[in-house]
Amino acid sequence: MTENLHRYLLIVLFQLIVVIHCEGMGTLRVTKEGVRLEGVSEFLLPLYVKEIQSRRDSPLVLQSDRNVTINARNDQGQLTGQLTVGSETVEAQCQRFEVRSADGERVLFSADEEEISIGTEKLRVTGTEGVVFSHSVETSHVRAEPFQDLKLESPTRTLTLEAPRGVEINAGVGDFTASCRKDLLLQSSEGEILIDAHSIRLGNIPVGSAVDPLEGAPAGTTYKKQTVYELCSCANGKLYLSPAEKGSTCQTTSNFCLWS
């Protein structure tokens, strides 16, 4: 009787093993297309598969109480790429990170150790403080939104615009304003500086007078109330106004250059 019972149990166990190997176990089913999982499945050890797909009418959800990490390795088992989704950050570790368009033909964003490239036609920054760059910026075109002002500002340092073949600043329907706390320098090493406008105005230019700065007395020339002035220049390039007469009065009022 005991031998028959053992033989019966062995037969049942063999049948169960055959069923498990042929069809699967519980929510795990073996089909012609591969292994199919029904419902929520939990894996306590690493899972090695070639491809994971969801049902056509359902999304694929990977869930963990901590981080979700996807690793890619080469033939020697070395880590070549890693994507980690954490509770606070999403990290990607790879030689080159790319974001492509829906058709996969255009690279919209790429980053590696050398540079970050943005392949979209327009880069839009919606923050109220704009964009802050710690170092230099290389671009062929900087443009504001329609009907909005474009402002390039360096609150505590120098703002420098450089180009090997020229810098063009164009305000099609508005004003162009350049302001600074100290000196505004326009310099051309080989060419010329051209100011071309319907009218050119220089404001807050001091008015020179024929006064001896050592004695504080008139140098022998007095002028009536003036409405027309002559523009004079000192040797250091500073400009000042001198009362206009029949001849030039710049030499008479040149004492201005000594104390200006």
Rank of each mutant, 00 (worst) to 15 (best):
P206H: 14
Y48M: 13
D57Q: 12
V107M: 13
V49C: 14
F147N: 11
L5V: 09
G220Y: 05
P243Y: 07
L44M: 13
S209Q: 02
R165K: 11
A144R: 06
S64Y: 10
S101K: 09
S179L: 08
G127F: 07
S154D: 11
G104W: 15
Y240C: 02
D149R: 15
E113G: 09
Y223P: 00
S260D: 05
T222E: 10
G119K: 14
I118N: 10
G220V: 08
G127V: 07
N67P: 00
A171E: 02
G247E: 09
G208C: 00
D149K: 14
H141R: 09
T160P: 00
G34V: 14
P218H: 06
G130P: 03
A244R: 06
D103H: 11
V61H: 08
R100V: 15
V107C: 12
L13W: 08
T221V: 10
G81M: 08
V107T: 15
T89I: 00
A197S: 11
N4K: 12
Y240S: 01
V61N: 09
E91Q: 15
S136G: 05
P59N: 13
D112F: 05
Q251S: 11
P155V: 01
L47C: 14
L194A: 08
H135S: 13
E51K: 10
T156A: 05
G216I: 01
R7I: 00
P164R: 01
T158Q: 05
T139D: 03
T160D: 06
A171T: 13
E162T: 10
Q148S: 15
K50D: 15
H141M: 05
L10T: 03
K238Q: 14
E245Y: 05
N74C: 12
Y240W: 04
L16E: 12
T2V: 07
S41G: 06
K224M: 02
K122N: 06
R66N: 09
I20A: 06
K246R: 10
S260N: 09
G86R: 11
S41Q: 10
L231E: 11
V49K: 15
